[in-house]
Simulated assay, not measured.
Amino acid sequence: MAGPPRDALRLDVVDMHTAGEPARIVLSGYPRLEGATILDKRRDALARCDHLRRVMMHEPRGHAGMYGVIPVEPSEAAKAQGASLACLFTHASGYSTMCGHATIAFARFAVERGLVATPAGGDGVARFGLELPCGVVAVEARLEGGAVVASAFESVPAFVAERDASIDVAGIGRVVYDVVFGGAFYAILPSRRLGLAFDAPLAERVGAGMTLFRALRAERPAPLHPDEPDLSFLYGVILTDDASPPAPTRNLCMFGEGQIDRSPTGSGVTARMALDLLAGRLEEGAARRFAGPTGDVFVGSARRDGEVAGRPAVRVRVEGRAFHVGEARLRVEPDDPLGSGFLLFEAEAG
């Protein structure tokens, strides 16, 4: 039987998931990205390699809710801060600046691929620094009998950008929300402010959340990061239940151009923990459980950590567990009219 054409594009990937949210990690076939900083590399990926994002993320090899990880070389500045590895995050509509679920998956991947040192005897915690577009995060993987049973990261400094902001939304009315940076900027509010109980049908909550998301992008200036213009955009909207800290709680995050996070959203957990700690609703070090749409859980705990441009800052530890789905060699045959990828629906929440 004849094999694929010799000039077919090939990408080798490992597929994992964390709380149901996919994490497709590139093994080989992706070109080396250029740039002195990781944000330079992110710009290079967008300018020169975005066709590969579409190949990996879009149909027929992916879908509108796909998510990916592109390992890159850490910058010299990040190495000086303790980073031994680095990666970019990508999805169906672009590139993220932070992703908790993918960091949790990458921690297991890094240990199992021998990219970081592991404890002698196979029990204990492997630790390493990971450079991401939002900065360097401390990552750990807990091993039992040589197997990774949980992964965690400690966030970059998180801070509240706006508290009790408001906007008039057509069909909903005046909506009050907070904007918090947890590696990316999120608008956070309980779903009841959109006129919906958190137990309302998922499609209704997504529809209302996306209506708010579009209004915020169209009518409000993008939130500004004090250090990096590339981080200055609203990445997602997070709807919450009404549980009071530290009781277990639930998240529903819509991000990008309408993707729905199946997980509790690691950077969203970071943002929510920072918001509650700084508002006095949560004690330092107290653990809180967050469930996403699949019901699987991340656990967060937070500590104060100085300031960011005069705003009180918080670092948040988020723990979860990732699982393998498979490995694949993705191919694009040169005469395939759909080989470059497509999305039947441009977003999950039209």
Rank of each mutant, 00 (worst) to 15 (best):
L33M: 05
V69T: 13
G82D: 11
G100Y: 01
K41E: 05
Y30V: 08
V72E: 11
A120S: 15
T103Q: 06
S28G: 14
A77K: 14
K79P: 01
A45Y: 04
A78P: 12
K41R: 15
A19C: 15
L115A: 13
V69R: 09
A102G: 03
G65A: 06
T90H: 02
L88V: 03
H101D: 10
H101I: 11
E112C: 10
E112L: 12
V72P: 07
V116A: 08
Y67H: 12
R43L: 09
I70T: 07
S75V: 09
T118V: 15
R24V: 05
E21G: 03
A45E: 04
Q81E: 15
A86N: 06
F106C: 12
F109G: 09
V116S: 10
R113W: 07
Q81L: 14
I38N: 07
R24G: 05
L85I: 03
P71T: 08
V55F: 15
K79A: 13
I25D: 14
Y95I: 02
S75D: 10
E34A: 15
I38G: 09
Y67V: 00
R43K: 11
T97Q: 01
V55H: 14
Q81K: 15
R48D: 00
L115S: 05
E112Q: 15
T18H: 06
V72T: 10
D44F: 05
G20E: 04
R48V: 04
P31A: 11
G62A: 04
A102S: 14
G94E: 00
G62M: 07
A45Q: 08
E59H: 12
S75Y: 08
G29K: 02
A83Q: 09
S93I: 00
D40Y: 02
A107Y: 00
A77L: 10
A23R: 08
F106Y: 15
R43E: 13
H63W: 08
G114N: 09
G68R: 06
P60S: 11
H63V: 01
E112F: 08
P31V: 10
F89C: 02
D50N: 14
G100V: 05
A92E: 02
A105R: 04
T103G: 05
P31Y: 06
A92M: 05
